[in-house]
Design a protein around this nucleic acid. Structure first.
Lengths: 362, 362
DNA sequence: GGCCGAAATGAATGCGCATACATTTGCCGC
DNA sequence: GCGGCAAATGTATGCGCATTCATTTCGGCC
């Protein structure tokens, strides 16, 4: 057994010594097994096993001039910025009456989980690792750690994106209004929303709609709003009859805004820019003593899990989250393979899920 | 401006040349600004700005002998293994009647998202990055990329964990039955479940219970089951009157199992090992035409978002997911700081959220 | 058996950074 | 104005690996 400092991870040198070959041979046995005699290869592999050798990704990255990792930048939320103090169990279990509160446990939309998994699987398929970062300030430190960066819409300022894009491939996720020269993958928000409106207006024949939009600075929201407007126009619905309010994509705010809107007058259908808003709208509707779908129809957008458990379950537009994450990584890989190709903008198709809050027929 | 190959990322050498100093000074200006004259520091910083220099994490890791990254290993699920083919939008939007299906959109529990964020925040607070991997085979390749690994319960075989633990700190998340010599962080499953039973039996005075457990090989489930049994014993409830069935922590299976159980006889309360199971139980209960909580009480465990949106909202035990992730990273940091300390096993406290499915009083 | 070319292997170098050690600069007091 | 010392800066080396180029080994063939 080769001598090496205990505690330190074994290196190629240890393996080489142990197998009685040079480090070059060890390296080759790993990277291009065919370029090495079967006999020596076996000796090397045996030594690797024996020592429990694992190549240092850092050294490899340095020599290769690529890190073998991609970064995924998720949006942060105010309450996410702070570390949460872990409370060790002291034996007591707090018991809380949580009836009526229905507070979202995390506060943050949990739907990034799916995107993350999609991205991770694709990255590893390609032999790369996935680094995750949550937006916080403008840290671009990750750019020194990865070969490419997938950025969620609004997770990074345009300026910061431009900075990073100068030194490595960047792909924008779910941000259709992105700079046209930067690759992007998104879902077909406009068509999704249009399909919903088509259903409500075209199929159900309802012309008395209201729209609960997202924040004014959200690109997603802008696109959905646009799809909404298009469909209305196509059906000759008077824009002036349409009432629209802006929320913040959050449930609480949506409930407040919806309440105002209902107090004014109850529309036959309330279309919401996302599921969280739709859940908020339901809160307000229930509070007003109205029934869904009898008195008012509600639709959401995103396909979050909770939407299917609401009462009634919310008609929504399901986004292919997993595929979105995978597509983002593929876009990075493609960009690395051909840095000179024109910018790619991939749009994934969505699916309308008709549920009780806005059924197939009335 | 210093000459450098275009396209290549600038290095310390470029910065040094541009600022008219040596690379050592550049390095110091970055790492320990105080050890450098304010004047030179400014020159260096200016050059860094000008060139858009970002240190190579790989080179730094090599020199430092630490990567500055932690790994988080999430459990994978069968359907996660495969990459999802992105479907480009062809203009058509599929419209599906999704009434009654209530299919979870992703299939996978989305609650890792919270843990991930907790871990990421804590890691970055410490100046480290977070690498995410999804279980798939036994790949320990990540061990060459990180300084420590946080492993979710069941995300890795015991043997593989032992392997990795030989070369770097490992902390187990939510796996209380873990090898005692490996650090772990978990939530107080036993006390949480016990508190629920205390409420049902002690406060509500119900003695006719059934338990819908998770998979037999789940450590989490074992612990919850144990807490359940303890509380029963404490209240002198006859174990033989208790009916228990094993599910798989999934909703569909739970619905099937619960249906069997109900067909046999309807208990006054059905306690479930997790929220997904409780949702499944609700499905079966509704299908059987029973009312919750009038005919039967239901409780879950985990505090997933959907539980709060169910009809009725499900009483559950909320786990501090975010804190759990943060605590895992802290444990790694502590272990790195003192490799010789005895194994630490941190248990975070949980909270019972009483909601309509099992209210504070009847 | 000896020669030649190809395959296998080894030696040496660089990737970008941190740092130990060497050198220079600056400052103080006399 | 100079010695002496501390602070500032520079030089050189190694981190672990991939890879180029040099060297050795092996086969085939005459």
């Amino acid at each position: 057994m080769a001598k090496r400092k205990v505690g330190a991870a074994p290196t190629v040198y240890d393996v080489a010594g142990s197998a009685g070959v040079s480090i070059a041979t060890v390296s080759r046995a790993i990277r291009s097994p065919d370029s090495v005699t079967p006999a020596t290869r076996e000796r090397v592999e045996e030594a690797i096993q024996r020592l429990g050798y694992v190549p240092s990704a850092s050294a490899r990255a340095l020599a290769d001039r690529r890190t073998g990792a991609y970064g995924l930048l998720l949006p942060g939320f105010d309450d996410i910025e702070d570390a949460v103090e872990p409370v060790p169990s002291d034996g007591a279990v707090r018991i809380t009456d949580d009836r009526g509160s229905r507070s979202p446990v995390g506060g943050a939309p949990l739907y990034f989980d799916e995107v993350l998994r999609g991205a991770e699987v694709e990255a590893w398929r390609h032999g790369s690792a996935l680094l995750v970062a949550v937006r916080r300030g403008q840290r671009q430190d990750i750019s020194g750690r990865v070969d490419g960066l997938a950025v969620f819409g609004r997770a990074m300022s345009e300026e910061a994106i431009g900075q990073v894009a100068r030194r490595m491939p960047v792909v924008l996720i779910a941000d259709e209004q992105a700079a046209p020269e930067i690759d992007s993958v998104s879902v077909d928000n406009a068509r999704g929303m249009r399909a919903v409106v088509e259903h409500v207006v075209g199929v159900l024949g309802i012309r008395d709609l209201a729209y609960l939009a997202g924040p004014k600075d959200s690109p997603d929201d802008a696109v959905r709003r646009h799809g909404f407007a298009e469909a209305l126009a196509a059906h000759g619905v008077d824009r002036r009859r349409l009432r629209m309010r802006h929320g913040d994509f959050g449930r609480a705010r949506a409930a407040a805004v919806a309440a105002e809107l209902l107090a004014e007058r109850v529309p036959r259908a309330l279309l919401c820019a996302n599921d969280q808003s739709a859940l908020g709208a339901l809160d307000a509707i229930h509070a007003a003593g109205l029934r869904v779908p009898e008195d008012i129809l509600v639709t959401g957008f995103d396909g979050i899990e909770a939407g299917g458990y609401a009462s009634p379950p919310i008609t929504t537009v399901r986004q292919p989250m997993r595929a979105l994450g995978g597509a983002a990584i593929r876009a990075l890989e493609a960009r690395i393979a051909d840095p000179t190709a024109p910018p790619q903008h991939l749009t994934l198709s969505v699916e309308v899920l008709l549920r009780e809050s806005c059924p197939p027929t009335l």
